[in-house]
Amino acid sequence: MRRITRFATVGIASAALALSATACGKTSSDAASDSGDVKAAIAYDIGGRGDQSFNDAAYAGLSKAEKELDVKGTEAEPSDGEADADKVQRLTSLARAGNNPVIGVGFAYAPAIEKVAPKFPDTTFGLIDDSSVQGENIANLVFNEEEGSYLAGVAAAKVSKSKTVGFIGGVETPLIKKFQAGFEQGVKDTDSSVKVLSQYLTQPPNFDGFVKPDLGKAAAQGQLDKGADVIYAAAGLAGSGAIEAASKADKWAIGVDSDQYNQKGLAAYKDNILTSVTKDVSGAVFNLIKSVKDGDPQSSEIRYGLDKNGVGLAESNPAYTKMTEVTEAVAAAKKNIIDGKIVVKTTP
Rank of each mutant, 00 (worst) to 15 (best):
L197M: 00
T9D: 06
K335M: 01
M323L: 15
K39G: 00
K115E: 10
T74Y: 13
I113F: 04
I338S: 06
S193W: 00
S282L: 06
Q185W: 11
I342P: 02
F125M: 00
S35D: 14
A40P: 13
M323A: 15
G312C: 10
K341L: 03
G98D: 01
S291F: 01
T324M: 03
F167I: 07
A110Y: 02
G312H: 10
P318D: 12
V71A: 07
D339Q: 05
V133E: 04
A181Y: 02
S282N: 07
T124F: 03
G47N: 08
E172Y: 03
T124L: 07
R2V: 03
A13S: 09
K39P: 00
A117W: 11
F167V: 05
I4M: 13
G126F: 02
V292D: 07
G106E: 14
A95P: 01
D208H: 11
L62N: 05
N100T: 02
A97K: 09
D307E: 15
S20E: 14
R49W: 09
G340V: 10
Q89K: 14
K322P: 02
S193E: 11
T74K: 10
S240R: 15
F210Y: 14
G47S: 06
L215P: 04
G310R: 09
D70K: 14
A245Y: 08
Y150H: 12
A18P: 07
F286E: 03
S258P: 10
L141P: 11
E184Y: 06
E145C: 01
G222Y: 12
K293A: 08
T321K: 12
T275S: 06
F179D: 04
E82Y: 11
L313K: 12
D34Y: 10
